[in-house]
Amino acid sequence: MLPDNLNIITLVSIGAHPTSGRARRAEQDARAVELGLRLAGDKLQVLHAGNPADEALRAYLGMGLSELTVLEQPSHGDALPLLNSYLKDAGAQLVLTGSQAETGEGSGMLPFLLAEQLGWPLVVGLAEVEKIENGMAQVLQALPRGQRRRLKVRLPFIACVDNAAPTARQSAFGPARRGQLQACEVAVVDDSLLVDAHFQPARPRPKRLKVIKAKTGAERMKAATAKAAGGGGQVLKDVSPQAGAEAIFKLLVEEGMLR
Protein backbone atom coordinates (compact mmCIF):
# COMPACT_ATOMS: atom_id res chain seq x y z
CA MET A 1 0.00 0.00 0.00
CA LEU A 2 3.06 2.22 0.05
CA PRO A 3 4.69 3.65 -3.09
CA ASP A 4 8.28 2.55 -3.63
CA ASN A 5 9.80 5.97 -4.03
CA LEU A 6 8.43 7.47 -0.87
CA ASN A 7 10.61 10.35 0.27
CA ILE A 8 10.57 10.42 4.05
CA ILE A 9 12.73 12.55 6.29
CA THR A 10 12.93 12.04 10.03
CA LEU A 11 14.18 14.88 12.20
CA VAL A 12 16.19 13.82 15.23
CA SER A 13 17.63 15.55 18.26
CA ILE A 14 19.99 14.65 21.08
CA GLY A 15 18.17 13.13 24.02
CA ALA A 16 19.01 12.85 27.70
CA HIS A 17 18.45 9.80 29.90
CA PRO A 18 15.78 10.62 32.50
CA THR A 19 17.76 9.39 35.51
CA SER A 20 21.37 9.96 34.57
CA GLY A 21 20.96 12.88 32.17
CA ARG A 22 23.53 11.28 29.89
CA ALA A 23 23.22 12.03 26.16
CA ARG A 24 21.42 9.34 24.17
CA ARG A 25 19.04 9.00 21.25
CA ALA A 26 15.80 10.77 22.14
CA GLU A 27 13.03 8.30 22.87
CA GLN A 28 10.36 9.81 20.63
CA ASP A 29 12.76 10.75 17.86
CA ALA A 30 13.95 7.16 17.81
CA ARG A 31 10.33 6.10 17.40
CA ALA A 32 10.04 8.51 14.48
CA VAL A 33 13.12 6.88 12.93
CA GLU A 34 11.57 3.46 13.55
CA LEU A 35 8.37 4.50 11.80
CA GLY A 36 10.38 5.94 8.93
CA LEU A 37 12.43 2.75 8.59
CA ARG A 38 9.26 0.68 8.47
CA LEU A 39 7.83 2.91 5.74
CA ALA A 40 10.86 3.68 3.59
CA GLY A 41 13.45 1.10 4.60
CA ASP A 42 17.00 2.13 3.86
CA LYS A 43 15.78 5.03 1.72
CA LEU A 44 14.84 6.91 4.87
CA GLN A 45 16.73 10.18 5.32
CA VAL A 46 17.50 11.31 8.82
CA LEU A 47 18.27 14.94 9.56
CA HIS A 48 19.74 16.66 12.58
CA ALA A 49 20.67 20.30 13.14
CA GLY A 50 23.61 20.64 15.47
CA ASN A 51 27.09 19.32 16.04
CA PRO A 52 28.09 16.56 13.56
CA ALA A 53 30.72 15.25 15.98
CA ASP A 54 28.14 14.42 18.63
CA GLU A 55 28.61 10.74 19.46
CA ALA A 56 25.03 10.38 20.69
CA LEU A 57 23.89 10.68 17.06
CA ARG A 58 25.53 7.32 16.39
CA ALA A 59 22.77 5.68 18.40
CA TYR A 60 20.42 6.55 15.51
CA LEU A 61 22.88 5.16 12.97
CA GLY A 62 22.91 1.95 15.05
CA MET A 63 19.29 1.39 14.06
CA GLY A 64 20.56 0.47 10.62
CA LEU A 65 21.03 3.80 8.85
CA SER A 66 23.97 4.15 6.52
CA GLU A 67 24.14 7.90 6.98
CA LEU A 68 22.68 10.82 8.86
CA THR A 69 22.72 14.36 7.54
CA VAL A 70 23.72 17.04 10.01
CA LEU A 71 23.07 20.71 9.32
CA GLU A 72 26.05 22.07 11.17
CA GLN A 73 25.24 24.77 13.67
CA PRO A 74 26.44 25.81 17.13
CA SER A 75 24.29 25.15 20.19
CA HIS A 76 22.93 28.70 20.23
CA GLY A 77 21.73 28.48 16.64
CA ASP A 78 18.10 28.42 15.66
CA ALA A 79 17.26 25.12 13.99
CA LEU A 80 13.98 26.27 12.53
CA PRO A 81 15.12 28.36 9.52
CA LEU A 82 17.75 25.75 8.65
CA LEU A 83 15.28 22.91 8.63
CA ASN A 84 12.75 25.04 6.82
CA SER A 85 15.05 25.85 3.93
CA TYR A 86 16.44 22.31 3.78
CA LEU A 87 13.00 20.71 3.68
CA LYS A 88 11.75 23.16 1.05
CA ASP A 89 14.39 21.89 -1.37
CA ALA A 90 14.53 18.26 -0.29
CA GLY A 91 11.28 17.24 -1.90
CA ALA A 92 10.13 15.39 1.17
CA GLN A 93 6.63 13.92 1.15
CA LEU A 94 6.52 13.08 4.82
CA VAL A 95 8.52 14.61 7.63
CA LEU A 96 8.52 12.74 10.93
CA THR A 97 9.53 14.22 14.27
CA GLY A 98 9.18 13.48 17.94
CA SER A 99 6.70 15.52 19.95
CA GLN A 100 9.13 17.22 22.26
CA ALA A 101 12.90 17.32 22.57
CA GLU A 102 14.56 15.98 25.70
CA THR A 103 17.24 18.66 25.72
CA GLY A 104 17.38 22.35 24.87
CA GLU A 105 14.15 24.29 24.95
CA GLY A 106 12.03 21.21 24.56
CA SER A 107 9.02 23.40 23.87
CA GLY A 108 7.48 20.95 21.44
CA MET A 109 6.82 23.89 19.11
CA LEU A 110 9.17 22.91 16.30
CA PRO A 111 6.76 20.75 14.25
CA PHE A 112 4.04 23.41 14.55
CA LEU A 113 6.30 26.28 13.49
CA LEU A 114 7.78 24.21 10.70
CA ALA A 115 4.36 23.22 9.40
CA GLU A 116 3.22 26.83 9.56
CA GLN A 117 6.24 28.10 7.66
CA LEU A 118 6.11 25.37 5.04
CA GLY A 119 2.36 25.62 4.76
CA TRP A 120 1.99 21.87 5.23
CA PRO A 121 -0.57 19.98 7.30
CA LEU A 122 0.57 18.68 10.67
CA VAL A 123 -0.57 15.45 12.31
CA VAL A 124 0.21 15.07 15.99
CA GLY A 125 0.37 11.74 17.78
CA LEU A 126 0.91 9.68 14.62
CA ALA A 127 0.59 5.99 15.47
CA GLU A 128 0.62 4.31 12.08
CA VAL A 129 0.64 5.10 8.37
CA GLU A 130 -1.88 2.76 6.79
CA LYS A 131 -1.50 3.62 3.15
CA ILE A 132 -0.35 6.30 0.77
CA GLU A 133 -2.11 6.58 -2.59
CA ASN A 134 -2.54 9.33 -5.16
CA GLY A 135 -0.85 11.94 -3.04
CA MET A 136 -3.03 11.16 -0.02
CA ALA A 137 -2.00 9.36 3.13
CA GLN A 138 -4.33 7.44 5.38
CA VAL A 139 -2.95 7.48 8.89
CA LEU A 140 -3.98 6.58 12.43
CA GLN A 141 -3.71 9.27 15.03
CA ALA A 142 -3.35 8.27 18.67
CA LEU A 143 -5.86 9.70 21.12
CA PRO A 144 -5.91 9.23 24.87
CA ARG A 145 -6.89 5.86 26.32
CA GLY A 146 -5.77 3.84 23.37
CA GLN A 147 -8.26 5.33 20.94
CA ARG A 148 -7.29 5.83 17.34
CA ARG A 149 -8.62 8.31 14.80
CA ARG A 150 -8.26 7.58 11.10
CA LEU A 151 -7.21 10.64 9.09
CA LYS A 152 -6.66 11.34 5.43
CA VAL A 153 -3.91 13.87 4.81
CA ARG A 154 -2.56 15.22 1.57
CA LEU A 155 1.16 14.99 0.94
CA PRO A 156 3.49 16.53 1.84
CA PHE A 157 2.82 16.77 5.54
CA ILE A 158 4.57 16.78 8.87
CA ALA A 159 3.73 14.26 11.57
CA CYS A 160 5.03 14.04 15.09
CA VAL A 161 5.00 10.80 17.00
CA ASP A 162 4.60 10.21 20.70
CA ASN A 163 4.73 7.06 22.77
CA ALA A 164 1.86 5.52 20.85
CA ALA A 165 4.16 4.93 17.88
CA PRO A 166 5.98 1.58 17.71
CA THR A 167 8.97 1.17 20.03
CA ALA A 168 12.30 1.96 18.46
CA ARG A 169 14.45 -0.99 17.48
CA GLN A 170 17.68 -1.71 19.32
CA SER A 171 20.68 0.35 18.34
CA ALA A 172 23.57 -1.92 17.42
CA PHE A 173 27.24 -1.13 17.80
CA GLY A 174 28.38 -2.29 14.34
CA PRO A 175 26.11 -0.12 12.17
CA ALA A 176 26.52 2.76 14.64
CA ARG A 177 30.27 2.64 14.12
CA ARG A 178 30.09 2.24 10.34
CA GLY A 179 27.40 4.82 9.63
CA GLN A 180 28.40 8.22 8.27
CA LEU A 181 27.56 11.55 9.89
CA GLN A 182 27.38 13.82 6.84
CA ALA A 183 28.00 17.39 7.86
CA CYS A 184 26.23 19.95 5.73
CA GLU A 185 27.47 23.54 5.87
CA VAL A 186 24.64 26.02 6.18
CA ALA A 187 24.28 29.66 7.09
CA VAL A 188 23.87 29.77 10.86
CA VAL A 189 21.00 31.79 12.25
CA ASP A 190 21.29 32.82 15.88
CA ASP A 191 18.37 31.96 18.07
CA SER A 192 17.00 35.36 19.06
CA LEU A 193 15.32 33.87 22.12
CA LEU A 194 18.60 32.56 23.51
CA VAL A 195 20.26 35.96 23.16
CA ASP A 196 18.39 37.47 26.10
CA ALA A 197 16.72 34.47 27.72
CA HIS A 198 18.46 31.98 29.99
CA PHE A 199 17.80 28.40 31.10
CA GLN A 200 16.72 27.56 34.60
CA PRO A 201 15.70 24.26 36.14
CA ALA A 202 12.06 23.45 35.69
CA ARG A 203 9.80 23.38 38.72
CA PRO A 204 8.21 20.01 39.23
CA ARG A 205 4.65 20.15 38.10
CA PRO A 206 2.24 19.86 41.02
CA LYS A 207 0.56 16.49 41.14
CA ARG A 208 -3.18 16.38 40.82
CA LEU A 209 -4.77 14.82 43.88
CA LYS A 210 -6.19 11.47 43.08
CA VAL A 211 -9.66 11.23 44.48
CA ILE A 212 -11.19 7.85 44.00
CA LYS A 213 -14.94 8.21 43.78
CA ALA A 214 -15.65 4.77 42.44
CA LYS A 215 -17.13 2.39 44.96
CA THR A 216 -17.12 -0.80 42.95
CA GLY A 217 -14.70 -2.50 40.63
CA ALA A 218 -17.03 -1.95 37.73
CA GLU A 219 -17.03 1.78 38.35
CA ARG A 220 -13.26 1.86 38.52
CA MET A 221 -13.08 -0.02 35.27
CA LYS A 222 -15.47 2.44 33.70
CA ALA A 223 -13.46 5.38 34.98
CA ALA A 224 -10.28 3.89 33.58
CA THR A 225 -11.66 3.09 30.16
CA ALA A 226 -14.40 5.62 29.47
CA LYS A 227 -13.84 8.32 26.94
CA ALA A 228 -12.98 11.70 28.33
CA ALA A 229 -16.37 13.25 28.52
CA GLY A 230 -16.29 16.75 27.16
CA GLY A 231 -18.77 19.16 28.70
CA GLY A 232 -20.72 20.77 25.92
CA GLY A 233 -20.29 20.36 22.24
CA GLN A 234 -22.65 19.02 19.68
CA VAL A 235 -22.50 16.35 17.04
CA LEU A 236 -23.25 17.61 13.56
CA LYS A 237 -24.45 15.02 11.13
CA ASP A 238 -25.54 15.28 7.52
CA VAL A 239 -24.98 19.02 7.35
CA SER A 240 -23.75 20.87 4.31
CA PRO A 241 -20.06 21.81 4.20
CA GLN A 242 -21.14 25.42 4.45
CA ALA A 243 -23.13 24.83 7.62
CA GLY A 244 -20.36 22.72 9.10
CA ALA A 245 -17.73 25.33 8.45
CA GLU A 246 -19.94 27.98 9.96
CA ALA A 247 -20.46 25.94 13.10
CA ILE A 248 -16.72 25.40 13.47
CA PHE A 249 -16.04 29.07 12.83
CA LYS A 250 -18.56 30.05 15.46
CA LEU A 251 -16.99 27.73 18.00
CA LEU A 252 -13.48 29.00 17.31
CA VAL A 253 -14.63 32.57 17.80
CA GLU A 254 -16.41 31.61 21.02
CA GLU A 255 -13.29 29.92 22.33
CA GLY A 256 -11.17 32.91 21.45
CA MET A 257 -9.10 30.99 18.94
CA LEU A 258 -10.09 33.40 16.18
CA ARG A 259 -10.74 37.02 16.51
Partner: peptide, 16 residues
Amino acid sequence: TLEKGATPNKGAEVLD
Protein backbone atom coordinates in the same frame (compact mmCIF):
# COMPACT_ATOMS: atom_id res chain seq x y z
CA THR B 1 23.71 -7.93 19.42
CA LEU B 2 26.50 -5.89 17.87
CA GLU B 3 25.50 -6.19 14.21
CA LYS B 4 21.81 -7.05 14.16
CA GLY B 5 20.59 -5.28 17.29
CA ALA B 6 18.54 -8.36 18.02
CA THR B 7 18.94 -9.03 21.73
CA PRO B 8 15.54 -10.49 22.64
CA ASN B 9 12.99 -9.37 25.19
CA LYS B 10 14.42 -7.03 27.83
CA GLY B 11 17.92 -7.34 26.39
CA ALA B 12 17.90 -4.07 24.47
CA GLU B 13 16.50 -2.17 27.44
CA VAL B 14 19.09 -3.59 29.83
CA LEU B 15 21.92 -2.74 27.44
CA ASP B 16 20.57 0.79 26.96
